[in-house]
Design a protein around this nucleic acid. Structure first.
Lengths: 173, 173
DNA sequence: TCACAGGAGTTCTATATAAGAACCCATATG
DNA sequence: CATATGGGTTCTTATATAGAACTCCTGTGA
């Protein structure tokens, strides 16, 4: 499967992954959320080749995740900024950071702390339910086919999943 | 930068990306959360080559995100299940799904709906603050160096960020 | 005016990673 | 015994990435 095919899948994960499911793209987005905006700043921080950086930025702009904003008028330069669509990736990035903090921080502890200006405290991100505001546990979620559903991707015959039945998500352990 | 170098960065995003920052890995994890557990089920659903599938599963097991559980005794077979470490990736996957639902669903609507068994309602994931339970807006978050911090990766001199000063995250637009 | 510097890329080649198909092995089943 | 199934591994070819060099534009100092 190529990148372009991914975007056509009937699955929001596949479609999102077709945009951000690449190590460099995720690192670029991390830096965007840290207020990095100029080509050479990205280059210096990431240790990425200019070639790949230019390519990823172009794709993110084409996707509407970033936008090129001109600045400095004499030699007009451009910086890359998150659009609202890009800002909406914040939960993805924060969830990634939090998992890394939890499982990959090593003994010296997490590299960054997050301070919530709104409440004045250091915090961790918590995934909650838009209906009841409770913390969401994967074992308490069922998946139902939505309006844009087809049969589950590439699974030829599975009556339990196609006839409107719900699937209990996950039962690890 | 190679995959292996990524894991050594002083950044939770980079470290997490070294584990899951690959399109196939993310799609495999999506399926894990949908109760897919057997090699050939993954293969059929994903349209992945067996080679790559075997490789990704092996890496996820080595990372402790999945574990191989024997089942069926006559010919002993194995299935892949999420560990707690793997289950803790749920916010990452849900955030990805939600972004895809928001921006990539097309006119037919989202492919899947999520039902929260705990409260009985359909829901969307919301990222909240562990301190105040409020919704987190990226513009209201500052980042501070944590105990495991070095200077920000590969940025030689930036006094504003090294001397304990906080960085306001993001100011797109 | 000329040489040089910085920002922002693009082009080139060598190497690493992924795709696709075929092959292997053990156990079961007809 | 021939074939099927789960669960891989090995091979060759295609694609993506790394690393370095080259381009172009606009300023600035000598």
């Amino acid at each position: 499967m190529r990148w372009n095919e991914l975007g056509g899948e009937k699955c929001s994960v596949a479609r999102t992954v077709s945009v951000i499911g690449d190590r460099w793209t995720l690192l670029i987005l991390r830096d965007c959320f840290l207020r990095i905006r100029k080509f050479d700043e990205f280059e210096a921080r990431l240790g990425i080749t200019r070639h790949i950086l230019a390519d990823r930025l172009k794709k993110l702009v084409a996707e509407g995740v970033l936008k090129k904003v001109p600045y400095g008028d004499r030699p007009v330069r451009h910086e890359y900024r998150l659009t609202q669509k890009g800002l909406d990736l914040y939960p993805v990035l924060m969830s990634i950071v939090h998992w890394g903090d939890t499982y990959k921080a090593g003994r010296s502890g997490r590299p960054l702390l997050h301070h919530h200006v709104a409440c004045g405290h250091q915090f961790d991100p918590v995934l909650t339910c838009s209906a009841c505001s409770g913390r969401v546990d994967p074992r308490e979620v069922r998946v139902l086919p939505g309006p844009g559903a087809a049969r589950p991707p590439r699974k030829a015959e599975d009556p339990s999943a196609t006839s409107g039945g719900s699937r209990r998500i996950v039962a690890a352990e």
